[in-house]
């Protein structure tokens, strides 16, 4: 393996670890237990959705609608919680809604063959609309004290939100790297025709990826609402962009067929460290976003450059 291949393979990990070390050595307040715990807690919702977003992108698709699922699922969960007082039921209900919405995306993409970007942009508006519908256009709050424990319970001093993220990441990684489903995802994204001729049910593989992502986006939304002890209907697309940024900076190819969940996790932490470092060093937020944009451009350009060197 030459240096280009090596850096292509492990570059994001090296960069993330370097940034961690630099911040730990130079920035006061970074390498404290409290700060690291906070960082992990803050990244949990992004990691939950980004692991399965990675799988969708490797299979050659895109899903914009996770922002809307992220908004509507906790509203649905709180509806159940307000009516029954049963938190477990509300979580199942919210995740179940995520599965149903993911399945709806899957049908539009695989059965009606609509480009996944366009399809999920369109369904986003529907799902945002559902959010207003079921919340009566107002902020919702849990009626039990248990609801906030979903994200805030501590095991070994670490929040349950972080544990949920860790478990989600592990499950998604195992699915992608150890199972037949994972292989089929890579094959479908790498060469759909070859996958089909190898006997793979391509629409079924793609549909499964959308459903899993729908469920994980819903779970992320519920964790988020538990942390903030409220949920609010909105048209806010920002969640999907945070998730996509992590996946893409991690080097998972938007063309499909290539990528890994550990890369997405590394990139999510890279972005979080950067953001955290800026705040601790009191960099003007104006400059923060300019630098963030530049980092994304560099990541994508590097990927495209290394691809060219390889062919």
């Amino acid at each position: 393996m030459n240096i280009i291949e090596l850096s292509r393979k492990y570059g994001i990990a090296v960069i993330t670890i370097s940034l961690f070390l630099i911040l730990a050595l130079t920035t006061e307040g970074f390498f404290t237990e409290r700060n690291i715990r906070n960082l992990l807690d803050q990244q949990s919702t992004i990691l939950i959705a980004a692991s399965f977003m990675t799988i969708v992108i490797i299979s050659g698709n895109f899903d914009i609608s996770i922002s809307a699922i992220f908004v509507v699922a906790p509203l649905f969960a709180l509806n159940i919680e307000n009516a029954t007082g049963n938190v477990l039921l509300s979580v199942f209900g919210g995740v179940g809604l995520g599965i149903i919405l993911g399945a709806f995306n899957a049908i539009v993409v695989t059965y009606f063959k609509v480009n996944s970007f366009i399809a999920t942009l369109a369904t986003s508006f529907m799902f945002f609309g559902f959010g207003y519908l079921i919340s009566d256009r107002s902020l919702m709050r849990p009626v039990t004290d248990t609801y906030q424990q979903i994200a805030r319970t501590k095991f070994f001093d670490i929040t349950s939100a972080t544990w949920i993220a860790l478990i989600t990441v592990i499950i998604a990684s195992i699915l992608l790297t150890r199972t037949r489903f994972g292989r089929n995802v890579f094959a479908t994204g790498g060469n759909q025709e070859a996958a089909r001729l190898a006997g793979i049910n391509v629409p079924m593989v793609q549909a499964t990826t959308f459903i899993l992502l729908g469920a994980s986006a819903a779970l992320a939304g519920i964790v988020n609402s538990s942390r903030s002890i409220s949920a609010q209907p909105s048209d806010d697309f920002s969640f999907v962009f945070s998730v996509l940024t992590a996946v893409i900076v991690g080097g998972t190819s938007i063309m499909g067929g290539k990528g890994a969940i550990w890369r997405t996790v590394a990139a999510a932490f890279f972005l979080a460290f950067m953001n955290n470092g800026f705040n601790l060093l009191q960099v003007d937020p104006l400059w923060q976003r300019i630098i963030l944009g530049l980092v994304i451009v560099i990541a994508v350009a590097l990927d495209s450059w290394s691809q060219r060197k390889n062919v």
């Binding site: 037949r180 060469n191 190898a198």
Partner: peptide, 26 residues
């Protein structure tokens, strides 16, 4: 025929992955 960006292993075993799969994965 081929998934060019994947390994020989993954290409060659693709149609017959069932043979190597169990509940514990591949």
């Amino acid at each position: 025929g081929l998934i060019l960006a994947r390994s020989l292993i993954e290409n060659i075993s693709l149609p017959y992955l069932k043979k190597f799969s169990s509940i514990y994965g591949v």
